Simulated assay, not measured.
Amino acid sequence: MVPDLERHAELAASLAEVRERIERAVAGAGRAPGSVALVAVTKTYPASDVELLAGLGVTDVGENKDQEAAAKAAAVSAAVRWHFVGQLQRNKARSVVTYADVVESVGSVRLATALGSAALSRRDRELEVLIQVSIDGDPSRGGAVDGGADPDRDLWRVAEAAAGGERLRLGGVMAVAPRDWEPLRAFARLADIAARLRADHPGATVVSAGMSGDLEAAVEHGATHVRIGTSLLGMRNPLR
């Protein structure tokens, strides 16, 4: 693959800005340098962008549609960790476990169970999973609910299902701030849930929160990973 030198320069400049922004947020929150990892969300962008980002030192890449992610993972030769960050139907579990290193969007017991079964039959290593938390508890949105009425989407039942999977590893939580919530309020609530989860599952230390528009608020409330798309990849014409 011949490098696109112009695109390489664009991504290098954007990556430097994003990294600087993350480190400023880390310093402002009084946290240790390097304590927040970047997940580059490359959905709708070509495999060549992933290769360029990997060459610039990006190690974690997020995708949100199985068909695109599977093809891209097969096309990319760079050694990156693939995060599946989109809504996932159970019938896609067998495909996703073949390439993903982390599934961040586990919001139901049934999905956790499906991933566990698929991982057991199709992987020789553990699959890290994060519990997607519904911050506002709205059942119409994706994610598990703290104290929800639906047992399948009760956050603590989902956590137990994920932790109990023979080839799954419960890594922590993920969330998106609801549009009608202030990010600081949303991520404060997530931080509380993450702390309670760690009390039962000490290894569940990941807090994936914050995107291009609100990463500072997420870092202030303990995010360990931020998922950045637009600020990194820009508004280049994406794949269709």
Rank of each mutant, 00 (worst) to 15 (best):
A79N: 05
R81K: 09
R185L: 15
S35C: 09
A162C: 15
L215M: 07
R110H: 10
S95Y: 05
M174N: 04
L190C: 04
D180A: 14
V96A: 01
G57L: 10
G164E: 05
E126W: 00
R81T: 13
R198C: 08
G34K: 10
G30V: 10
A37G: 14
V106A: 10
A195D: 14
L190D: 03
T44G: 06
V226Y: 04
D66C: 13
A175C: 13
L155P: 00
V207P: 02
G137W: 06
A149V: 13
G148H: 02
P202H: 12
A218S: 01
L130I: 11
G34T: 11
A114G: 09
S14E: 12
R125W: 08
V219Y: 03
S35R: 11
A40P: 09
A69P: 00
L53R: 10
K72T: 07
I131F: 02
R90A: 15
A144S: 10
V26I: 08
R21V: 12
A144R: 01
R24C: 03
A195K: 13
W82D: 05
H8M: 14
P139H: 03
A204Y: 09
E104Y: 02
V50A: 07
V176Y: 04
A74N: 06
E20W: 09
V103K: 00
T113V: 15
L56Q: 04
A37R: 15
E68V: 07
I135Y: 01
A209H: 01
N64W: 03
R240K: 13
F187K: 10
L115M: 07
Q89C: 02
P178L: 13
E63F: 07
V219S: 05
G229D: 04
G172T: 02
I22L: 15
Q89M: 12
R7K: 13
R198M: 08
R122M: 10
R90N: 08
K65M: 12
D60A: 13
N237A: 15
W82V: 06
M1L: 14
V97N: 00
P33Q: 11
L120C: 04
R81G: 01
K65S: 11
S48K: 01
V58R: 09
V2E: 14
A73K: 02
A75Q: 03
R24I: 12
L197M: 12
R227L: 12
Q89H: 12
S231T: 06
L130C: 08
P238I: 10
E63T: 08
A73Y: 05
A175E: 07
L233P: 01
L130W: 01
R122V: 04
M235H: 13
G55L: 05
D150P: 00
R110Q: 14
R157G: 02
D150H: 05
D101Y: 05
V58N: 08
P202S: 11
I22R: 11
G164V: 05
E128K: 10
R90F: 04
D101Q: 00
L53Q: 12
P3K: 08
E128V: 10
S14Y: 09
R94V: 05
L88Y: 06
